[in-house]
Amino acid sequence: MNFFPCTLVYVDLDARPGPNATNRDPLSYVNQAICLNNSLRQMGMPTLTIMSNAPAEVARRLDSIAPEKRPSLMRLNATIELSKDTPFYAAHFKLDLLDQVAGALPADTMLLLLDTDMVAMRPLEQKLIGRCAEAGLGAFDISDQVFPAYGSEKVVADLEIVAGQRFRNPRWYGGEFLLGTPEALRRLVLRARSTYTRYVGEIDRLGHHGDEAFISATLNALADEGQGIVEVGAYQAVGRHWPGNNYRDLRWFRACSFIHLPGGKALLEKEARSAGFVPQRFWRRVQAAHLRGRARFALKWIARALGVERLVKRFACTVRRLKGQTMR
């Protein structure tokens, strides 16, 4: 099977910026996509295609790049209507992207949907691609990160509200990576359209917003109906890393084919200005950012500890003073 790497760049100056966005330039995601494309080319993978509702603006940002090094560009036919104050507003349009691509891909080509704030560090394993092709879908299960952080009962409740049904083994899937055959994608889109409608109708009841909520609900529903889904994180096809986070040893991420860096957007935009992607150089920058993050966590912990200590001392002094007044 061949695969078609693709990413979404949705531009809307009136929309609420993404929660992890640090650059207010609406086209900063194009810079991240340039870095992603450079890394794909370095790993011998196909050229990235950017799908955007504003292809003319994106094309102008790409003008300075040599034609043979540019990502490809396609117009996104956006149909979704949603309040622009919704968190992760732009990411909701991945559903339109999936719909459009599923109807255009040849039968022997799989969609590889990626977020812009990612890099390829190693080629995807051919055996894994074959497993995903046989199953129909490969997705990134991040339940072990989301369930403890927000409470498994709350997360599962959101999924089942959105799907309108109970799941046998509910899972939460990250939106940064999806590998699927055209046939499986068409099945996914058909179910996701109705799931999305329910998601919008129930959005005020939900603790989680964004494409992950309704796509995860859809994937769970399909899984309960027998749809095969390969959990690609177990194969280290992708890892989600936050600078300073000790969720996994940093060395684990170095062995991943793709690293998602939602807290490292500035790092990716800086890397995009380099002539080419050099994995060893980029990894050194990731390591440095991680160490700075660990230092920030340590300082925050010390500050909190000292704050509590001061409160305890103040309380003890107050108690002693009150005791002295009582004795007098």
Score class of each variant (00 low, 15 high):
residue 129 I to M: 14
residue 132 C to F: 05
residue 303 A to F: 02
residue 186 R to T: 09
residue 119 V to L: 09
residue 164 G to S: 07
residue 275 A to N: 12
residue 189 V to H: 00
residue 89 Y to I: 06
residue 15 A to L: 05
residue 204 D to E: 14
residue 30 V to K: 02
residue 284 R to I: 04
residue 261 L to P: 01
residue 96 D to F: 05
residue 260 H to G: 13
residue 134 E to V: 09
residue 209 H to L: 12
residue 328 R to N: 11
residue 120 A to Q: 02
residue 157 A to C: 08
residue 190 L to A: 15
residue 102 A to Y: 07
residue 25 D to I: 04
residue 104 A to R: 11
residue 261 L to T: 03
residue 15 A to R: 07
residue 252 W to V: 13
residue 68 E to P: 00
residue 61 R to N: 11
residue 51 M to A: 12
residue 146 V to K: 04
residue 129 I to D: 05
residue 220 N to Y: 06
residue 35 C to R: 08
residue 278 V to T: 13
residue 189 V to I: 05
residue 252 W to Q: 10
residue 76 L to A: 02
residue 287 Q to R: 09
residue 117 D to M: 02
residue 155 V to G: 07
residue 148 P to A: 11
residue 154 K to L: 14
residue 327 M to W: 02
residue 186 R to L: 06
residue 238 V to M: 15
residue 172 W to M: 05
residue 99 D to S: 14
residue 149 A to G: 04
residue 99 D to M: 05
residue 225 E to I: 00
residue 17 P to L: 09
residue 123 P to F: 12
residue 163 A to N: 01
residue 289 A to R: 04
residue 55 P to N: 09
residue 151 G to S: 08
residue 238 V to I: 15
residue 185 L to T: 06
residue 104 A to S: 14
residue 66 A to M: 10
residue 184 A to I: 08
residue 18 G to V: 01
residue 98 L to T: 01
residue 117 D to K: 05
residue 236 Q to T: 10
residue 83 S to G: 06
residue 180 G to F: 05
residue 247 Y to W: 13
residue 85 D to I: 11
residue 221 A to V: 06
residue 109 T to K: 02
residue 319 V to H: 01
residue 173 Y to P: 01
residue 76 L to W: 02
residue 220 N to C: 12
residue 295 A to W: 13
residue 28 S to A: 15
residue 20 N to G: 03
residue 235 Y to R: 08
residue 99 D to W: 05
residue 210 G to V: 10
residue 288 A to W: 04
residue 8 L to W: 01
residue 20 N to W: 10
residue 155 V to I: 13
residue 111 L to S: 12
residue 172 W to L: 01
residue 54 A to H: 07
residue 15 A to V: 06
residue 290 H to V: 07
residue 104 A to V: 09
residue 270 K to I: 10
residue 238 V to H: 06
